[in-house]
Amino acid sequence: GTVKVQGITIKVPNPDKAYKIAKKLAKKYNLTVTRKGNTIKVE
């Protein structure tokens, strides 16, 4: 899958794990995490 952070896309082998990490970071930096299948977008 991929993770998008402010325009940066990161390929990740485990979208579930990445999503959990993204959620933690999002809370810390007051961002929104959206997930569509293997693509995770943080904005």
Rank of each mutant, 00 (worst) to 15 (best):
1 G>P: 06
1 G>Y: 07
1 G>D: 05
1 G>T: 06
1 G>Q: 07
1 G>A: 07
1 G>V: 11
1 G>H: 06
1 G>I: 12
2 T>N: 05
2 T>Y: 14
2 T>P: 05
2 T>S: 08
2 T>F: 13
2 T>W: 15
2 T>V: 12
3 V>R: 03
3 V>H: 05
3 V>G: 04
3 V>S: 03
3 V>E: 05
3 V>I: 13
3 V>L: 12
4 K>I: 15
4 K>A: 10
4 K>S: 13
4 K>R: 07
4 K>T: 14
4 K>M: 14
4 K>C: 15
4 K>V: 14
4 K>H: 14
5 V>Y: 15
5 V>Q: 04
5 V>T: 04
5 V>S: 03
5 V>E: 03
6 Q>C: 15
6 Q>S: 13
6 Q>T: 11
6 Q>E: 07
6 Q>I: 12
6 Q>H: 14
6 Q>D: 11
7 G>K: 08
7 G>Q: 07
7 G>A: 08
7 G>P: 01
7 G>F: 11
7 G>H: 07
7 G>E: 04
7 G>S: 09
7 G>V: 10
7 G>L: 09
7 G>N: 06
8 I>V: 09
8 I>M: 09
8 I>A: 03
8 I>T: 02
8 I>K: 04
8 I>S: 03
8 I>W: 08
8 I>Y: 07
8 I>E: 00
8 I>Q: 04
8 I>L: 10
8 I>D: 01
8 I>N: 01
8 I>P: 00
9 T>H: 05
9 T>M: 10
9 T>R: 04
9 T>V: 10
9 T>D: 03
9 T>A: 09
9 T>C: 13
9 T>F: 11
9 T>L: 13
9 T>Y: 10
9 T>P: 04
9 T>K: 09
10 I>P: 01
10 I>N: 01
10 I>S: 01
10 I>W: 04
10 I>V: 08
11 K>I: 12
11 K>W: 15
11 K>L: 13
11 K>C: 15
11 K>E: 08
11 K>Q: 12
11 K>H: 13
11 K>R: 13
12 V>S: 03
12 V>L: 08
12 V>H: 05
12 V>T: 04
12 V>W: 05
12 V>A: 03
12 V>R: 01
12 V>N: 02
12 V>P: 03
12 V>D: 01
13 P>S: 13
13 P>A: 12
13 P>L: 12
13 P>G: 10
13 P>Y: 08
13 P>K: 12
13 P>Q: 10
14 N>V: 07
14 N>S: 08
14 N>R: 05
14 N>D: 12
14 N>W: 13
14 N>H: 11
14 N>F: 13
14 N>P: 15
14 N>G: 02
15 P>M: 14
15 P>K: 05
15 P>C: 09
15 P>Q: 02
15 P>I: 15
15 P>G: 09
15 P>S: 08
15 P>H: 05
15 P>W: 13
15 P>A: 14
15 P>L: 15
15 P>T: 12
15 P>V: 15
16 D>F: 08
16 D>K: 09
16 D>T: 09
16 D>M: 08
16 D>R: 06
16 D>E: 10
16 D>W: 09
16 D>Q: 08
16 D>V: 07
16 D>P: 05
16 D>H: 10
17 K>S: 08
17 K>L: 14
17 K>A: 12
17 K>I: 13
17 K>V: 13
17 K>F: 13
17 K>H: 08
17 K>G: 04
17 K>E: 11
17 K>T: 10
18 A>G: 03
18 A>W: 14
18 A>V: 11
18 A>H: 01
18 A>N: 00
18 A>S: 03
18 A>D: 00
18 A>Y: 09
18 A>M: 08
18 A>I: 09
18 A>F: 11
19 Y>P: 00
19 Y>V: 02
19 Y>W: 14
19 Y>C: 11
19 Y>G: 00
19 Y>T: 00
19 Y>K: 04
19 Y>I: 06
19 Y>R: 03
20 K>D: 11
20 K>W: 11
20 K>R: 08
20 K>C: 14
20 K>E: 14
20 K>G: 06
20 K>H: 12
20 K>P: 00
20 K>T: 09
20 K>V: 07
21 I>T: 04
21 I>Y: 09
21 I>L: 09
21 I>V: 08
21 I>E: 04
21 I>R: 02
21 I>Q: 02
21 I>P: 00
21 I>G: 01
22 A>V: 13
22 A>F: 15
22 A>S: 03
22 A>Q: 00
22 A>C: 14
22 A>K: 00
22 A>E: 00
22 A>H: 01
22 A>M: 13
23 K>I: 13
23 K>M: 13
23 K>V: 13
23 K>G: 04
23 K>A: 04
23 K>N: 07
23 K>P: 00
23 K>E: 07
23 K>T: 11
23 K>R: 11
23 K>C: 15
24 K>W: 14
24 K>Y: 14
24 K>L: 14
24 K>A: 14
24 K>R: 12
24 K>S: 10
24 K>C: 15
24 K>N: 07
24 K>F: 14
24 K>H: 12
24 K>D: 08
24 K>M: 12
25 L>Y: 06
25 L>I: 08
25 L>N: 00
25 L>M: 04
25 L>S: 00
25 L>K: 01
25 L>E: 00
25 L>D: 00
25 L>A: 03
25 L>P: 00
25 L>T: 00
26 A>L: 08
26 A>M: 07
26 A>T: 00
26 A>Q: 05
26 A>Y: 11
26 A>H: 06
26 A>N: 02
27 K>R: 08
27 K>L: 09
27 K>H: 06
27 K>P: 04
27 K>Q: 11
27 K>E: 10
27 K>N: 07
27 K>F: 07
27 K>S: 09
27 K>D: 06
27 K>C: 13
27 K>G: 09
28 K>A: 10
28 K>C: 15
28 K>V: 12
28 K>P: 01
28 K>T: 04
28 K>D: 03
28 K>M: 12
28 K>R: 08
28 K>Q: 07
28 K>L: 14
28 K>I: 14
29 Y>Q: 00
29 Y>E: 00
29 Y>V: 06
29 Y>S: 02
29 Y>T: 02
29 Y>H: 04
29 Y>I: 05
29 Y>N: 00
29 Y>L: 09
30 N>L: 10
30 N>G: 13
30 N>D: 05
30 N>Q: 06
30 N>C: 13
30 N>F: 12
30 N>K: 10
30 N>M: 06
30 N>R: 07
31 L>P: 01
31 L>E: 01
31 L>T: 01
31 L>Q: 01
31 L>S: 02
31 L>K: 04
32 T>W: 06
32 T>F: 11
32 T>G: 02
32 T>M: 08
32 T>V: 14
32 T>A: 06
33 V>N: 00
33 V>Q: 00
33 V>T: 02
33 V>I: 11
33 V>L: 04
33 V>A: 02
33 V>S: 01
33 V>M: 02
33 V>D: 00
33 V>F: 03
34 T>A: 06
34 T>R: 06
34 T>P: 00
34 T>M: 07
34 T>W: 13
34 T>V: 08
34 T>Y: 03
34 T>G: 03
34 T>S: 07
34 T>Q: 03
35 R>V: 08
35 R>L: 10
35 R>W: 12
35 R>N: 06
35 R>A: 06
35 R>G: 04
35 R>E: 03
35 R>H: 04
36 K>N: 10
36 K>P: 02
36 K>I: 13
36 K>S: 08
36 K>C: 15
36 K>Q: 13
36 K>E: 14
36 K>L: 10
36 K>A: 10
37 G>I: 02
37 G>H: 04
37 G>K: 07
37 G>W: 02
37 G>T: 01
37 G>Q: 03
38 N>L: 02
38 N>Y: 02
38 N>I: 05
38 N>E: 07
38 N>S: 07
38 N>H: 05
38 N>V: 05
38 N>T: 05
38 N>P: 03
38 N>C: 15
38 N>Q: 06
38 N>M: 05
39 T>N: 09
39 T>Q: 10
39 T>A: 08
39 T>W: 08
39 T>S: 08
39 T>L: 10
39 T>R: 05
39 T>H: 11
39 T>I: 11
39 T>D: 10
39 T>V: 14
40 I>Q: 04
40 I>D: 02
40 I>M: 02
40 I>V: 05
40 I>L: 09
40 I>Y: 03
40 I>W: 04
40 I>P: 05
41 K>G: 01
41 K>M: 14
41 K>I: 15
41 K>F: 15
41 K>S: 12
41 K>N: 12
41 K>A: 07
41 K>H: 13
41 K>Y: 15
41 K>D: 06
42 V>F: 11
42 V>H: 04
42 V>N: 07
42 V>Q: 04
42 V>M: 04
42 V>C: 10
42 V>Y: 04
42 V>L: 12
42 V>W: 02
42 V>A: 05
42 V>I: 14
42 V>K: 11
43 E>S: 11
43 E>Y: 13
43 E>G: 11
43 E>P: 05
43 E>A: 10
43 E>C: 15
43 E>V: 11
43 E>H: 12
43 E>N: 10
43 E>D: 05
43 E>W: 13
43 E>R: 07
43 E>T: 13
